[in-house]
């Protein structure tokens, strides 16, 4: 890289940031000077439109296109529900669906619970920052890094050799036979889920820790004066206080779990009955070049997320009522 390259790069970033600020500045300048009549509409558009326009181009249009693709064959001819029929008739389909459900049940709940417990335990303790960084680190590690990290946990070597996977080494220390973790059903799916939990706990912990900091100190102290123990205070004061944060964390992790494909893809390739819907989608759309089938799986994913959407609508309504 030459110095000119570097200047060019910095120039790009600088221009982009300046341009972005300038456009926003202009928008706000005119919004504040909009005629009284219709100012509300102008304001609304100014705040909402930039994001909405990008979303329409980048997500809504592709989503519609994907839905149409789901009803077509390789060449794009309309074939009705064939892709969906294919999905539910191939032998592995039900296993894939079952696995996805198992993932969604376990991963969000466990990472949220551990993240919450951890956030509560370390709250205001000495060295809170160090504690936080330790659990946060997995979030910051690239996926390539995470893959190699877990290789050193699950790797199998026969009993007569030195283990290089920690889990099997522990078994060997206790006089057990090493296990092929990623190949033995059904624990292999569990082993993959653990990787996701390991990553997502840091996310849950950071958000929930921030929420906990927001819980009213007065209430906690009042409860303490009433002679409640730590668990009661947590149940009756902290938990209601961080309800919003909990919903956010659970929802976000659930959606991330539904979309998970790279853990499965790189660790087992979907073999040994560990595949999930998102992984099938990727494989069909890009490896097998069957865009219709891939799209059909994407539609199924979308349907799977609907219950979460409905739940969030209800939470949203409740919030509105409180306010």
């Amino acid at each position: 890289m030459t110095t000119t390259d570097l200047i060019g790069k910095l120039l790009q970033v600088g221009l982009a940031l300046a341009g972005f600020s300038a456009v926003l500045g202009l928008i706000f300048f005119f919004v504040d000077r909009a005629p009284k009549r219709g100012r509300d509409v102008v304001q609304l558009l100014a705040f909402l439109l930039p994001a909405m326009a990008l979303i329409a181009i980048g997500l809504v249009y592709p989503a519609i296109r994907t839905t149409i693709t789901a009803f077509g064959d390789k060449a794009g001819n309309f074939i009705g529900l064939d892709n969906f029929v294919w999905m539910f008739t191939q032998p592995e389909a039900l296993i894939t669906l079952r696995n996805t459900v198992v993932w969604v049940i376990i991963a969000p709940a466990v990472s949220t619970i551990i993240g919450l417990a951890y956030a509560v335990f370390i709250d205001k303790s000495r060295g809170e920052r160090i504690y936080k960084v330790l659990v946060f680190m997995p979030v910051a590690i690239s996926f390539v890094g995470a893959g190699i990290i877990w290789k050193f946990i699950y790797e199998y070597r026969p009993a007569e050799r030195d283990q290089i996977g920690l889990l099997n080494q522990i078994l060997v220390w206790f006089g057990q036979e090493p296990v092929l973790w990623l190949q033995t059903e059904p624990i292999n799916t569990l082993m993959l889920i653990i990787v996701l939990i390991w990553v997502q706990t840091g996310f849950a912990m950071v958000i929930l820790s921030a929420s906990i900091k927001g819980v009213s100190i007065e209430q906690l102290e009042a409860a303490q004066l009433d002679g409640t123990n730590a668990w009661q205070r947590f149940r009756n004061v902290t938990l209601p206080g961080i309800r919003g944060g909990l919903v956010v964390v659970l929802t976000t992790i659930t959606i991330a779990t539904l979309k998970i494909f790279d853990i499965v893809r790189t660790m087992t390739g979907g073999n040994f009955n560990t595949s999930v819907v998102a992984n099938e989608m990727y494989t069909q759309a890009f490896r097998a070049v069957e865009p219709g089938r891939g799209a059909a799986l994407a539609v199924v994913l979308f349907l799977l997320v609907l219950p979460i959407v409905v739940y969030n609508i209800r939470v949203l309504r409740q919030q509105k009522e409180i306010r």
Partner: peptide, 11 residues
């Protein structure tokens, strides 16, 4: 040879 049983082949 030295890598395990038949089931070790896949991994």
């Amino acid at each position: 040879g030295g890598l395990g049983e038949v089931n070790s082949i896949a991994t």
